[in-house]
Design a protein around this nucleic acid. Structure first.
Lengths: 264, 264
DNA sequence: GAGTGGTCTAGACCACCAC
DNA sequence: TGGTGGTCTAGACCACTCA
């Protein structure tokens, strides 16, 4: 007997099940059960119900609490896993994705070394200061011009030679205790620190890539000629709910490395 | 009663079902039924059983012919649809993906106009000739140096100004009748022509992106200064079975356009 | 109305992991 | 041994398309 009236076992949880004998015109924007479940799970992630790296309840538990079958929960989790919000591990459970404990650090960095180069990049923090956001940054981070903002500048090295110059801009309201010391103490990618210290998880990002000529300052920092061609990678990163929380502009010296992209 | 011994209704089709009472050590590289089905469907695509844009048999038909349930076929098709090899259309059927009848042409081109620019690019064929493959191209296309190769050169324009200079290299053996006339007659993306005229479908691609300085020849063609920074996009495209069948190097003028990439 | 993909359920069994 | 995710089945019903 499919689709019994279903008393939700968690009160306050209202899932919109398919109309039984309505007029036929189904309400606009009705989504299938598994998508509603998916949305509820995202809400809980956003609310911080489970931290990065932690296990979420088992499929059976979730199914019981939502009052649906395991298969429906499974399909919701399938999509979340496909979007890299969750990670499934057979026999163990389903976990909140994290940037911290990843095998290859730098989940979003697409820079690869040429064949003869060694992988791995060293970091050098140049600067970390609090500023007022200029208009073009504020617009992209959905803040007001003049709002508090943290600006970080750093270099990435390969075999002692600078390869990447990053400028990173963050909303000051979300990253209150971010200091040079904290950044220097920390091992691993920044995004791991953002998760553990500030509870901000980067879920997806958009990059705009251009070729630009090095100006005097960047030429000195990257040890290239003024006017040398550099890859400009402008990245806007988002948390849950498509909220932009980081703007980053990287200048890559692509003489010994390249940006790799896979198209499907 | 799950997993009955199952007499395959199509002779010659041997699916490896899970061991019933074997020693416990399952054979190496056993894959679930739906993956085997997926592999069989890919084989048929590769063999040209269905052309680009055509419908494949319904899920019920496939399930019957493979001797499995509809759900198993469905999961196989789900993955193929996620990889953009197939396209599902509710109420109509499942179709072989094609570059020809796509809404936004240029499925693999990630170049976007800046806000104030109009979308859409005009094409101008510069050259199409048959050559012997140099070593560095032959290696990537898995051919031998000196093998027959087709070389195409073209420009893409936006509002009358050149934006992209493409060099395209193709194995001569696969593209025998490719001529300047054929390319000029054809409307829509090259990949549509490759499908319809040569039965070659581009499934996925890898791009290596760098910033380079314009040399004299490209500067003239793209109407920029010599030494101006350009985006170099080297794309290797693959058909079924991960066979590389096209190498392309695009030089993009990114002063009014940018390369867009989404990270998950 | 017949046929297609899309959703949802219920139940069985398997593979992997930890205790 | 029990719990987790992973696979497979069978059947019901829904939503969409087209003749």
């Amino acid at each position: 007997m499919p689709n019994p009236p279903a008393v939700p076992s968690t009160p306050g949880l209202e899932l919109q099940r398919g109309e039984a004998a309505s007029g036929g015109l189904s309400s606009p924007a009705f989504s299938p059960l598994y998508r509603q479940i998916k949305g509820l799970i995202i809400q809980r992630l956003q609310a911080g119900a489970w931290k990065a790296g932690e296990a979420i309840p088992s499929e059976m538990e979730l199914a019981a609490s939502f009052g649906v079958s395991q298969g429906t929960v499974r399909k919701a989790i399938d999509e979340l896993a496909a979007e890299n919000l969750l990670v499934r591990r057979q026999g163990k459970g389903t976990f909140v994705a994290t940037h911290a404990e990843q095998k290859q650090q730098y989940r979003f960095l697409r820079l690869m070394p040429d064949e003869d180069q060694e992988p791995g990049l060293g970091r050098q923090l140049l600067d970390c200061r609090r500023q007022r956001a200029p208009a073009w940054i504020a617009r992209q981070l959905q803040m007001r011009a003049g709002d508090a903002m943290v600006e970080v500048r750093r270099l990435l090295h390969s075999k002692g030679r600078p390869v990447v110059l990053d400028d990173i801009w963050l909303p000051g309201s979300l990253f209150k205790g971010l200091t040079t010391e904290l950044l220097n103490q920390h091992r691993g990618p920044f995004y791991g620190l953002f998760e553990s210290e500030f509870g901000v998880q980067m879920i997806r990002a958009q990059e705009k890539i251009r070729a630009v000529a090095a100006d005097a300052e960047t030429a000195a920092l990257l040890q290239v000629e003024v006017g040398a061609p550099l890859l400009s990678v402008e990245r806007l990163s988002f948390t849950y709910g498509d909220r932009p929380v980081e703007l980053r502009r990287g200048l890559y010296n692509t003489s010994t490395h390249f940006y790799r992209n896979d198209l499907n």
